[in-house]
Structure formats: C-alpha cells, structure tokens
Amino acid sequence: MTGPGPWLAALAEPHALFALGLTARTALVTLPLHLAAGLALGAWLARGRSPLKTAVEMAVTLPLVFPPVAIGFVLLMLLGRRGVVGAFLLEHAGVELVFSFHGVVLASFVAGLPLVVRPVQSAIRSLPPALAEAALVLGKTPLQAFFLAVLPAVRRSLAAGMILAFGRSLGEVGITMMLGGNILGRTNTLSLEIYNAVSAGEFESAAALCTLLGAVSACVFWALRRLGAF
C-alpha cells in the first residue's frame, strides 16, 4: 500500500462503512450506560451493605477473568429465544436480544463495565467518610452529597475507567460474536469486520480499519487529557 488512496477505498466499501456506523451507534448507546452503571455499582460496592454484594462484585468482575467467548455463550443460553430470560422478553415485550443491535450493545456493555466499576469502587473506598458526611451536615441529601462531594473527588478514576471501557468495547470480539452473530450488514462491528477482512485475505482493508480504530482511540485519550481528566 503506497498511498492513502487504497486505504480510503477500503474504508469506503459498503461493509466497512456499515461496520463503522454500527460501532459508532453502539458507542453512543454504551458510553452513557457505562457512566451510569459504573458510578452506581462502584459507589454501592464501595460503601453499600448487602448479602448480595459479593455475588454482584463477582458477576461484574467476571469479564476480566473469564474468556469472552465463554461469557458470550452463557449469555446466549440465557438470552436466546429458548433461554429463560430471552423467551420471557420475546413473549411479553417482543424484544429479541441476540443477533440484533441490542445484542451488540449488551456485549459492549458487559465487556467494558468492570473497567469502569473497579476504578470508581477503589477511588470511593479511599475517600474519607467525612467528605460526604460534611455535605450531609450542611443539609444536602445523600444523592446531592454524592454528586457534589464524592463525584468530583473520583472524576479522574471515572475518566480512566471510561477510556479503558471504550477501548475494550471497541476491541470486543468474543461476546459480540456470540450475541450478535457477526451477521454482515446487521451485526458486524468494526472489530469483527477486521476479523472478517483477515479471514478473507483482505489485509489492506484490515490494515486500514486497524489504523482508523487506533486513531479514534488516540483522539479520545487526547480529548480527555485536554478536558483535565488527568
């Protein structure tokens, strides 16, 4: 590949454009979900008291230590048409999670969630309890105390977690392949399209997509640094 022409031509292919669009839409949906769930679970695991705490923490951390394909298979058995959860959702809500955009979003969410929760959990655990208690003494509600006192103190850990979760979600293959099915024109994300291109021997297309993916990741990291996340 001697110039940008072949690279641009590879990115302009219909299957590549679809993969880019699907990945962008998935990120737009997943990022706010990671933000909300990461903050809520991180705070609850750091300070909450419940007999379910250990089980929830283990479930959240599982994607870090369990093979993605195996996690995807378990979710497929639960959420498929014949799965306990999947059959219920299909019958009562008309929602089919697997082999759809919903499945791709769920795979991205599950893969990146622990990378947001764990830094937030550790950061909140390291804070002195007096920080939130001072806000409560001043008449703030627990929710207001969290957003006014706790959240600013853990914003750097949250930003770092969001960066890691975003990168992990973009690079996710195993869970996405199981829940999404890697259906061309329907559930082939950018990472899966790279896999498809390599499998078909289209190395120029794979190289162009990898370069684009790296550039997007670098831009996100740079933007967060400029915003003072670090």
Rank of each mutant, 00 (worst) to 15 (best):
Ile124Tyr: 05
Met162Arg: 09
Val74Asn: 03
Ser217Met: 11
Leu11Thr: 01
Trp44Lys: 06
Phe66Val: 14
Trp7Ala: 13
Ala208Asp: 06
Pro129Ile: 00
Ala93Gly: 02
Ala215Ile: 14
Ala229Asn: 13
Gly139Arg: 06
Phe166Asp: 01
Ala59Asn: 08
Glu133His: 13
Ser100Glu: 09
Ala134Phe: 00
Ala223Ile: 07
Leu143Ala: 12
Thr61Val: 15
Ala134Gly: 15
Leu113Met: 04
Val198Trp: 02
Val110Trp: 02
Leu35Arg: 07
Pro4Gln: 01
Leu22Phe: 11
Pro14Asn: 06
Ala24Leu: 14
Ser122Val: 14
Ala40Met: 12
Leu62Arg: 04
Thr26Ala: 15
Ala46Gly: 09
Val98Asn: 11
Arg186Ser: 12
Ala153Cys: 04
Ala207Cys: 04
Met58Trp: 15
Gly21Ala: 12
Leu184Ala: 12
Thr61Trp: 07
Gly42His: 04
Thr54Val: 14
Thr211Ser: 12
Pro63Ile: 10
Pro67His: 05
Ala19Asp: 09
Leu76Ser: 00
Leu62Ser: 11
Pro119Gln: 01
Glu172Tyr: 09
Thr54Gln: 14
Leu131Gly: 04
Trp44Asn: 06
Leu148His: 15
Ala111Tyr: 04
Arg81Gly: 15
Pro128Thr: 00
Ala107Tyr: 07
Asn188Gln: 14
Ala87Glu: 07
Arg49Cys: 11
Leu190Ile: 05
Ser205Gly: 10
Cys210Ala: 15
Ala197His: 06
Ala130His: 09
Ile71Trp: 12
Ala40Glu: 02
Tyr195Gln: 12
Gly83Met: 08
Gly5Arg: 09
Ala9Cys: 07
Ala40Gln: 01
Thr141Gln: 06
Ser191Met: 06
Cys219Thr: 14
Thr176Val: 14
Met162Thr: 06
Phe66Ser: 02
Phe203Ser: 00
Ala165Thr: 03
Thr54His: 11
Phe73Gln: 00
Thr54Pro: 08
Leu192Phe: 07
Leu11Asp: 02
Val84Ala: 13
Arg25Cys: 12
Phe166Cys: 04
Gly38Ile: 08
Met177Asn: 11
Leu113Phe: 00
Ser191Thr: 11
Thr189Pro: 08
Val85Asp: 10
Ala43Ile: 00
Asn188Ala: 13
Leu209Ser: 01
Gly171Gln: 07
Leu64Glu: 11
Leu213Met: 14
Phe230Trp: 13
Gly180Ala: 05
Glu172Ala: 03
Leu75Tyr: 12
Leu170Glu: 02
Phe18Gly: 06
Gly83Leu: 05
Ala149Met: 01
Ala12Thr: 13
Gln144Tyr: 01
Arg118Trp: 00
Leu138Asn: 10
Arg118Thr: 10
Thr2Val: 13
Gly180Tyr: 04
Phe166Gly: 02
Val84Glu: 05
Val56Ala: 12
Phe147Gln: 00
Ala130Met: 04
Met178Pro: 01
Ala107Leu: 06
Ala19Tyr: 03
Gly174Gln: 05
Glu172Val: 13
Leu78Asn: 08
Gly48Thr: 06
Arg125Asp: 15
Leu115Ile: 04
Thr61His: 03
Thr23Gly: 05
Val74Leu: 15
Ala40Thr: 14
Val84Thr: 15
Thr211His: 01
